[in-house]
Design a protein around this nucleic acid. Structure first.
Lengths: 248, 248
DNA sequence: ATCAAAACTGCGGTAATTTGCGCGTTTGAT
DNA sequence: ATCAAACGCGCAAATTACCGCAGTTTTGAT
C-alpha cells in the first residue's frame, strides 16, 4: 500500500470516527507502529489532525461547539451509557431522534454488529461511523422542529419493520398517564414505533419525569425500560418502580 | 508498443483500480522503470493523475475522500451560487448529496417556496432551515461512504416522483463518455434520479472534468445544465459546449 | 530516397524516500 | 511510586527517484 493511500485511509477513519488509535491502524494497515506514527506526524504537519498519546483526533471535532451547547449534556451522556448496555450483537434496533439518542449512539462500542433503523438523519450520520452497523434511514416528510421524518409514509414503512428494541427520547412521562406528547404527528409516529418493536426503552432526563401533556402515546405498561441519569434507587423514580418496568 | 498505447494502458489501469504501482507497470508493459516514470510524469503534466512515491493514483479517487475541511470550498461556493439561479418558486427539486450540493443549499434565498426531495440527510437538515421549503427525505439503506441513502427502496421511491429539476454532484464527467461513476449502487441511484426529473443539472468542480470512470451513468446529452466554477467561455469547457448543453 | 533534427529508450551512478528495529525516554493509570 | 504502553530518535537496508548520456527510432523537409 502506498503512503498516500495510507494517509487517505487514516483521514477517512478520522473523518468517520473523529478519532483513531495508533494500535488499530497498525492492525488495519499491517505496518509497523513507527510508520503509523510517522504518517500521523506528517498529517499533523499538513494541519489535518491533532495527534495525542495513543492516536489522533479530528480537527473539526474540537472546533465544533455543537456538543457543548447541548442542554443537560452530562445527564444525556450518562443516559446514553446506560442505554448502550441494552444493545447486543445481531440486534435490530429502531431509534427516534433527539440529542439524548445522539449521545447514546456516540457511545456504542466500535465493533458492534447490528442493524439500526432510524427516523433521524443526524442519528443516521452518526451511526454510519460504525463499520459493522447497517443503517436504514426511514424516509418521508422532514420535520423542521423535531429534525426527524414523519407522516404517512414513515408510518407505513414502520409497519413493515420488526425490531428487537425501540429507543426513543421523550417529551414527558408520568406514572399514571404514561408517555404523552404535544404534536399530533409526533404522537402518531411514536405509536407506530412502539408497535413495531418487541421492547421499548425510553430515554428521559429527570426533569421530564412526572409530566403529562395533551396527547397520549401509550400507557406506562407498554414501556420495557426507563433510562434516566438518576441512580436506580433514586426516590424520584418510586412511582415508576411500582409499575414494574425495568429502570436503569 | 507505442508511447500512446502505454499511456492509454496506464490510464485504463488507473480508472479501473484507482491506483497503479510503477513496478507492476514495468512488468506488464515490459519497459524500464525510467520509461514508466517518464510516462507517469507526462500524464501528470496532462493533469490526468497524481504521482506518488511508488506509483500513481487516480485524481477522482483522491477527491472522493473529502478532507474535513471541505476540499476546494471556494469553487463549490461559486458553483452553488450559479445553481441557485435555476430555482424558481413552486418548483419540485430533487437533489443528491455531497459538499457541493450543500453549498448550493446554503445559498438559497430565504423566502423561497418550493418542494425538495433529497437522498442526503445532511442536505435535508440544511434545507429544514428554510420555512417555506417542504423537505422530503427519501429513505433506505444509508451509505457510509457517500452519506446518502441508496438501494432498491430508494429507487422505488424515486420512481414515484416527478421533479422539475434534479441537481446532482458528480464523480467524473467527460465530453464523450458522459457521466460516469465507480460504484454500482451509486450508479444505479443516479440513473434513477435522472429518470424522474424533467431536467438535470450537474454540479462539477473543474478538476473532475474530462475524466471517465468505470461505470456509465448517462451520455452527456441527458444532461440539461453543466455548472462549474469556471467562466462560461473558459477553454476547458469547449468540448462540452459542442454538445449543446447549457453551461453556467 | 536521404539526411539532420527531434524524440524515445535503456543504462549507470547517485540522491532521496521509505520502512523496520533497537533503545532510552515520556506518559498515564493504578 | 511503579510499570507497561506509547513515544521519538538515529541507524541501516531496501526501494524508488532523478540526472546525464549514448544508441536507436521516428519525424519532416528537401
Amino acid at each position: 500500500m502506498l503512503k498516500k493511500e495510507r494517509h487517505d485511509f487514516i483521514m477517512r477513519q478520522i473523518n468517520l470516527h473523529n478519532r483513531v488509535l495508533t494500535s488499530d491502524l497498525v492492525q488495519l494497515l499491517n505496518v509497523s507502529e513507527d510508520t503509523i506514527r510517522r504518517d500521523l506526524q506528517e498529517l499533523v504537519d499538513e494541519n489535518l489532525l491533532y495527534k495525542v498519546h495513543g492516536g489522533a483526533l479530528s480537527k473539526s471535532y474540537h472546533s465544533s461547539f455543537d456538543d457543548s451547547t447541548v442542554y443537560a449534556r452530562d445527564s444525556k451522556i450518562a443516559i446514553g451509557k446506560k442505554a448502550v448496555q441494552l444493545i447486543k450483537d445481531g440486534m435490530v434496533v429502531l431509534t427516534g431522534g433527539g440529542t439524548t439518542i445522539l449521545e447514546f449512539v456516540k457511545r456504542l462500542p466500535q465493533g458492534l454488529s447490528a442493524t439500526f433503523f432510524t427516523i433521524s438523519p443526524l442519528v443516521a450520520v452518526e451511526l454510519a461511523k460504525y463499520n459493522n452497523i447497517e443503517v436504514i434511514l426511514i424516509g418521508g416528510l422532514f420535520s423542521k422542529n423535531s429534525q426527524v421524518t414523519y407522516g404517512g409514509q414513515v408510518i407505513t414503512q414502520l409497519s413493515e419493520i420488526k425490531a428487537d428494541l425501540c429507543l426513543m427520547g421523550t417529551s414527558a412521562i408520568h406514572p399514571d398517564e404514561g408517555l404523552t406528547d404535544t404534536y399530533w404527528e409526533i404522537n402518531q409516529l411514536k405509536k407506530a414505533m412502539l408497535a413495531c418493536a418487541k421492547k421499548t426503552a425510553v430515554l428521559c432526563i429527570s426533569e421530564k419525569l412526572d409530566i403529562a401533556l395533551r396527547l397520549r402515546v401509550c400507557p406506562i405498561e407498554s414501556i420495557s425500560y426507563l433510562i434516566t441519569e438518576l441512580e436506580v434507587g433514586h426516590e424520584s423514580l418510586a412511582g415508576y418502580r411500582a409499575k414494574e418496568l425495568n429502570i436503569l
